[in-house]
Amino acid sequence: METAEFETQLLASIRQIGIPPRPVILEKIALEMRRDEPDLITLARIISADVSISGSLLKVVNSPYFGYRTKARTVQDALTMLGLANTASTIATIVLRNVLPPMPAMERFWDASARVAEISGWLAQEIGRKDGVRSEDAYTFSLFRDCGIPIMMRKFPQYIETLAIANADTERAFTEVEESRHPTNHAVVGSLLGQSWWLPENTCQAIRHHHDFVSIRAGAGALSPTVRRLIALSQLAERIDQEMTGQNQSCEWHKMGEACLELLDLSAADLPALQAGASELMRGHAP
């Protein structure tokens, strides 16, 4: 192979790693969903063609944090239980980790995201469904919430340091700290990515505002109740996870906890019971 050609290809592959394009499977599903009468059987066939994705899909749908009583045995079961749009979002959560730029030391980040997502899904049923937030919405949102972080890391070499500073800041919003050091923040990046993956609009809005402690307060009218509830559930889930694992201490609960509890109609006294429930959930399907 010519050196120049090789270099072009190498450059191409490096660049492609960096850009999270819309995964082909999501494109195929979107194509089918756009039809006048989407055909579930065709869709099931498209999804089943990828054994790893369809396996993960069934695992997620049948997990306790999705809260379905009936079990899905086939991809088609999963499709009818979740509906088309939700299936697409769930598949997006499955492929997300593989398409984002790989980073050293990101394992912990992804593991924490997965736990927070599961606890969020569980909390959504446990606290009671309201404002149109279903378990699967809470789960998807929590998994996507921080997807801007690996992208920021790739673009800005100093970003690791920024994360540490933002996690330790008790006053300013997380994104404000980011913006004091970079021209953008992971919430805006994440919501843009979510939009380009056709995630539900509420999910994208929630990604964008998940550190926005002013907007989630009661009476702040900028965000819809659905979006605020998604954010509150996820922050609470993160708090519970951090209490459980003792890892990744951030100051988000300090800044947002009160507003989140109020939004969810909870008080601090409810936390121990929720924590116990979450521990049981996580023990139930520990890897």
Binding site: R15, I19, I151, P183, T184, N185, V188, V189, L192
Partner: peptide, 12 residues
Amino acid sequence: KQTLYAVLACSD
């Protein structure tokens, strides 16, 4: 402004 830079971050 952040959105413009986010576009640059998500692409090359």
